[in-house]
Computed example of a mutant assay.
Amino acid sequence: CAQCLQWQIDPETGQRTKAVFSCAQQDQPLAWVDLDNLTARQNQNRLLEYLSSKWLNMVLTDNKRRQ
């Protein structure tokens, strides 16, 4: 789904080194994580999660009415 895609950075230079899936590399050193980018990605995903939740609630409510 790529929601956990994030950049790793070189702690010495602060430069991005590679993109990784944080769900697959949960034990990476915190100094390698680009926290600013990770925060931005989570903020982007929040809207989609909110809309998906609203849609699911509407579908389930409509389904209960029809039964």
Rank of each mutant, 00 (worst) to 15 (best):
Ala40His: 07
Gly14Cys: 04
Asp27His: 13
Gln42Ala: 07
Thr17Ser: 05
Gln3Glu: 12
Thr39Trp: 08
Asn37Ser: 07
Gln28Lys: 14
Val33Gln: 02
Phe21Leu: 14
Ser22Arg: 14
Cys23Lys: 09
Ile9Gln: 00
Ser22Gly: 06
Cys4Gly: 00
Trp32Pro: 01
Leu30Gln: 09
Trp7Arg: 00
Lys18Gln: 15
Gln8Leu: 12
Leu38Cys: 06
Met58Leu: 12
Asn43Gln: 15
Leu51Lys: 07
Tyr50Thr: 14
Ser22Lys: 08
Cys4His: 02
Asp36His: 08
Arg16Ala: 06
Leu60Asp: 06
Pro11Lys: 00
Thr39His: 14
Val33Trp: 00
Ala40Cys: 11
Trp32His: 07
Lys64Ile: 13
Cys4Ser: 02
Cys23Trp: 04
Gln42Lys: 06
Gln6Asn: 12
Asp27Thr: 05
Asp36Tyr: 06
Ile9Thr: 04
Asp36Gly: 09
Gln67Trp: 15
Leu35Met: 15
Ser53Arg: 12
Asn37Ile: 02
Leu56Tyr: 03
Gln25Tyr: 12
Pro11His: 02
Ala24Pro: 01
Asp34Pro: 02
Glu12Phe: 10
Gln15Leu: 13
Asp27Asn: 13
Gln28Ser: 15
Trp7Ser: 00
Trp32Gln: 03
Glu12Asp: 14
Val59Leu: 07
Leu5Tyr: 03
Lys54Gly: 05
Leu51Gly: 03
Trp55Ala: 15
Ser52Gln: 07
Asn57Arg: 14
Ala31Lys: 15
Gln28Phe: 12
Leu51Cys: 06
Asn57Tyr: 09
Ala19Leu: 08
Asn57Asp: 13
Gln8Thr: 13
Met58Ile: 10
Thr39Ala: 12
Ala19His: 08
Leu47Gln: 04
Ser53Asn: 12
Gln42Pro: 01
Cys23Tyr: 02
Gln26Leu: 05
Gln15Ser: 06
Gln6Val: 08
Trp7His: 05
Leu38Val: 05
Gln3Cys: 09
Tyr50Met: 13
Ala31Met: 10
Ala19Val: 05
Pro11Leu: 02
Leu48Val: 01
Thr13Phe: 01
Gln26Asn: 08
Cys4Met: 03
Pro11Met: 00
Val33Thr: 05
Gln3Ala: 06
Leu47His: 01
Arg65Met: 06
Asn45Tyr: 02
Asp27Lys: 11
Gly14His: 11
Glu12Ala: 05
Gly14Leu: 09
Val59Lys: 10
Gln42Trp: 04
Leu47Lys: 01
Gln3Leu: 06
Asp62His: 12
Arg65Glu: 11
Val20Phe: 04
Gln44Cys: 03
Leu35Gly: 04
Lys54Phe: 09
Ile9Ala: 01
Ser53Asp: 06
Leu38Trp: 06
Thr61Lys: 10
Ile9His: 01
Gln15Arg: 12
Leu60Gln: 15
Met58His: 13
Asn37Tyr: 10
Cys1Leu: 14
Glu49Lys: 10
Lys64His: 10
Glu49Gly: 04
Ser22Met: 15
